[in-house]
Design a protein around this nucleic acid. Structure first.
Lengths: 213, 213
DNA sequence: GCACCATTAGAGTAATAAATCTGTTTCGCC
DNA sequence: GGCGAAACAGATTTATTACTCTAATGGTGC
């Protein structure tokens, strides 16, 4: 692997483990056994590295929301979408940790994140519309936006909830704990599920395991 | 006002306006025209100041949730509780900005926040139980906890949503924007409201103004 | 073998910020 | 007035960190 890519990969790893804030460029360089000068040969500054990481995140999330247009979607489709979204949030979990701080000293990233979030919320709305079309849900038109926004906030805030309210230490956070958010999501959606779907969902929920709330 | 109190008050102001991270002890001292040495005469360190601010927040939120026990509560009671909670979140909004970072380098605060959040969520549950008892809502027992948690996450994350997804600059955040979260809360509660309450709530919602989502 | 350029090393710089140290002033009180 | 303690000033220290500078290294085409 090229040094340039190793820098980004190592940065992502270290950021996820210890938070962007407490990882210096020297840490990154040391971790892959190169000199600080070398790191700065490849990237102008730390923001530049973060921007490249965000490139990946942005692209991956965008791809995620593309549902099959030629046929009805299934509950399986929906479940997979959620699962892959959580995969991404997990893989880039440092982002939603110090997000406000990061955006505060990087105007460009701030712009980009704003567009990203807006698009993400819009895509979530689309998913619900589709769920309605395919008979899984019935949501009054004026409640689609609020629901999508609530879900978005819930999903992007869940790791923060784990870290702060539950006090999970940074290095003990697991993908399984992140998965618990599915229960919360389900409860948000429950009132809008059609009868048959609700039963099926409840069975699925019982299968998965206990809620940690 | 005593210097000791002025330090805390000025810190809170500056933290709210620019974030705890970017406010140094020198800034605080300069703002109230005292020397850094003097500041450190009154407080051991920055964490000490933050702890004193948290003292206030903690106490204020605890008082908040005390509902009249001798009579049925009204929708007005509930609305006031929400309003006062938002007042507090507004007054101490710096807390929920860099919370993860703050707790990461202050073990004691981390412990305290954890207890605080747990209690807050529990209190929220109590409110909903009470709302059920008084005939305003009907929530299946197993959905009270998830609902309370969702509401808690929503309320504590709303300022972050405004700052990141909507890109509101730190110094342009207003109490009115925070108030918008009421709409989101209402949509979360809507499915569980009893008929009469739902109508009343919808009217109230229409009165308040447009949703910014 | 040599010129060229991407790549790398590593010491060094400048800025920042938390905290300390040494003293001086102010205030309550006898 | 004067004494002791609380309150305060301000320069300084210590640590950290993002980033730069100069020089070396190594591969590639000729």
């Amino acid at each position: 692997m090229k040094t340039k890519d190793k820098i980004v990969q190592a940065s992502l790893e270290l950021f996820n483990l210890h938070g962007e804030r407490s990882i210096t460029t020297n840490h990154i360089a040391a971790h892959i056994k190169i000199s600080p000068g070398n790191l700065y040969y490849h990237y102008r500054n730390k923001s530049d590295i973060i921007a490249r990481i965000f490139d990946q995140y942005e692209k991956a999330v965008a791809n995620l929301f593309e549902l099959p247009a030629d046929r009805d979607i299934t509950l399986e489709d929906r479940a997979q979408l959620t699962d892959k979204l959580l995969d991404l949030i997990w893989a880039y979990r440092f982002m939603h940790r110090d997000l406000v701080g990061m955006l505060a000293n990087d105007a460009e990233l701030k712009e980009r994140y704003q567009a990203f979030a807006t698009q993400g919320i819009r895509s979530t709305e689309m998913v619900y519309r589709r769920m309605c079309e395919c008979g899984f849900m019935a949501i009054p038109e004026d409640q689609i936006k609020p629901l999508a926004l609530n879900i978005w906030i819930l999903v992007t805030s869940w790791t923060t909830y784990l870290r702060t309210a539950l006090g999970v230490p940074e290095d003990e956070l697991t993908r399984e704990q992140l998965n618990q958010v599915i229960y919360q999501m389900t409860y948000l959606e429950m009132p809008y599920l059609t009868e048959a779907t609700r039963e099926e969902t409840q069975e699925l929920l019982a299968t998965y395991g206990p809620n940690a709330a």
